[in-house]
Design a binder for these strands. Structure first.
Lengths: 149, 149
DNA sequence: CCTATATGGTTGCGATGTTAATTAATTCGC
DNA sequence: GCGAATTAATTAACATCGCAACCATATAGG
């Protein structure tokens, strides 16, 4: 009857929260100077990296739920960081794009953000860093059973 | 000039969010039946595992910020899951304890929670699971520089 | 065509995350 | 002792999370 709960000190959910907190703290502190939240930064990053795209695509890439993203987009649009235009053939959809101002914000934070990323990588060591990403991917992926048969 | 931002698809913060989401989804679904949130469950678990303790201690062990915990405790107290009593010598503090009803809720979910934990462990393999926890701990710990010199 | 169903987004609601300010009680330093 | 700095916890304010319900449009079938 293996119904023993794992000790909270070795609990995967809690460990994930703590790690995220440790990684994000310096980023949040950096973004505060630009008046951005961590989620808004993720949206900018995705639009910059992958180009104009639908709301649903951004939600997937930035790991945001649609309801959250919907509200975040209104804020970002008001701030002039992004544009929202109607899809040409499907009027349900809208295409999101980063503005020049949005690009400016990315540029203002690029150097420091890159430095933070490098610091974390250095702290863990390249090997550990890659191993961690691989393990996290493994945790995430196994939701849909493989399309075998 | 290493100022290149890491690709969002290999971004540690996003990977951590996704992994957490993957791990928590079945737990949340389980807890919904008991009318509990994930955070309330963590508080119960900590009080059950470590015994009566201060608010600050619970916050640390459950990885919750004090303002969040403060609200959560009111809810849980109203539900009769915990008690809050004044510390004997320091009147600023309060001692939290789980009630019989709180223990009941843990008991109701123990089996399924343990099964979920086992399933994740099995999916990753014991070795990967432990390695992941170790790496996450490594990410978290390195905040305070070693007390050298 | 016209209705039933599915899809892309939004809104409502209750709860938590995050920072800053606040209150109350304790401890420190002179 | 007594006021200044600390500490434990709460409150305030704003943003996001997560679920459910909801519009609007698009697609499928008859």
């Amino acid at each position: 009857m293996n119904n023993k709960l794992p000790s909270t000190s070795r609990s995967l959910p809690i460990a994930l929260i703590r790690a995220r907190e440790a990684v994000m703290a310096p980023v949040r502190s950096m973004l505060a100077a630009s008046g951005l939240t961590e989620q808004q930064w993720r949206v900018l990053r995705v639009l910059d990296e992958c180009g104009p795209q639908d709301t649903t695509d951004v939600a997937e890439r930035a790991s945001l739920l649609l309801p959250s993203l919907s509200r975040i987009l209104r804020t970002m649009s008001d701030k002039g960081l992004i544009t929202r235009t109607q899809h040409s053939t499907d009027r349900r959809r809208q295409t999101l794009a980063i503005t020049a101002q949005g690009l400016d914000v990315i540029e203002q934070n690029r150097e420091e953000a890159a430095a933070i990323a490098v610091a974390i990588k250095a702290r863990l060591g390249d090997e550990n860093y890659e191993a961690l990403l691989d393990l996290l991917e493994l945790v995430t992926e196994e939701h849909k059973p493989p399309p075998s048969a």
